[in-house]
Write a protein that binds this DNA or RNA. Structure first.
Lengths: 133, 133, 133, 133
DNA sequence: GTGGTCTAGACCACC
DNA sequence: GTGGTCTAGACCACG
């Protein structure tokens, strides 16, 4: 699991970590039940504070993507992943809307926009697709 | 031009204003050359601080969506709107990626995701569509 | 709003704070829309670190009892309080079960146990009851 | 005696064990004088550490629910079970209060709350009730 | 060793 | 002024 941080981004570090873990799950690089590195080791690997890693884990635990297991530490949700909840739909629409309106104003066509969405969606399945041969 | 703020959102108010102005342009509710309300009046209408409105305008001016006109004050870009720059493509991909990976993990199908993107893109053209008919 | 901490309790400080705020809402001492003290001021009042107070606020925000308002800081949920969710029922049963089984073994009768539950439930409405005259 | 652990619960394993033993006594599944499985065998059955089971036994011995018997090893308190001490009343009230106040805020009615308490109390007597008929 | 909690002190964006 | 984030370093319960 490789995580690359942009320390000087406007996006919080913990959010970057959380997102890349989700991407890892989406791509099949991380599988249900897999053990995550301990907060300490990941923090040390990334050269950041353990609390920052911990916050990322907490956020994902809260959303149901990770679980804290008493014996194995933090693991990727071994049971059922959270589904397409109403809250997620809301979030999805809000984020899409913010980016779509700018695309419209900048003159990006409908097909270009949809093509970009599709490409990105498929990109997240890259690894998994490779694994499935 | 109606702007609705969510004071308890995690999204900064100035960003909410900026986005809704872009949406207004996308939908055709705001047209090139239109005069924007003065910082003071908009701030007063929204019941917020002058600085907040000003920051929203600054951001949009910076991106080329607004212009400062000698007599009319702040106006919607009367000339050519900023196009699909490489920077925008990057931003688009980054934002899509963040939401797409979560969609994948939550089990949202490719077609559902693309349909959502399309719906949102078209939603931004709602007003314009109405006007065109 | 008075909060009393047991610094040497096994119960985390942040949890004590969170619970006493909920009790304050239950009793009517805190009403929807009321502004909570800032993390800094409450922390200073209680003689603890601001992060500890912050965590209590975060937990309550997560559960929907508090909201973070961009202008007023942290406020008591002004809209609808979270209802009797399935998750709460689960939590309720788990906690009741833990205490009820011990009550049974210690020979506390059914009526004594129910009476205690009732008394405690009503106790939480003490202030509110007083206010309603 | 069946003990089921939730490894990903926030509740310590030793506490889960201790509670389920108390529940076993409450339900009549475990009777005064009954021999408890040895620390080693129980630990092995549950697939956990010796120390963890030991700690559960220590806690229960401390409270008077278990006793160390010269020959039989650890047994369920053969004499008089601990009664309704003042310390227990305190604990009972503290725990009930924490859950009752949240119930009040969430709009759970007095009768619903009392009904839940009663149901849980009786639930702990399920087995015993079955045996008595 | 793990995660959970707490402290202390700092910088930041926002309003 | 507010809350949000990050760092550094510490202690604890748990397994």
């Amino acid at each position: 699991m490789f995580i690359e941080l942009e320390l000087q981004s406007d996006r919080p570090i913990f959010a970057q970590i959380a997102q890349q873990i989700v991407e890892g799950i989406a791509s099949g690089e991380l599988n249900p039940g897999d053990a995550m590195p301990s907060v300490r080791s990941l923090a040390s690997d990334l050269g950041i504070n353990l609390h920052t890693v911990n916050k990322a884990y907490q956020v994902l635990k809260q959303d149901g993507f990770l679980q804290v297991h008493r014996k194995k530490g933090v693991v990727v949700q071994p049971g059922e992943m959270p589904g397409v909840t109403e809250a997620f739909i809301d979030k999805l629409h809000r984020q899409l809307r913010s980016v779509a309106s700018e695309a419209v104003v900048r003159g990006m066509s409908e097909s270009e926009f949809v093509a970009a969405s599709l490409a990105v969606y498929r990109g997240d399945l890259m690894y998994k697709g490779d694994n499935l041969e």
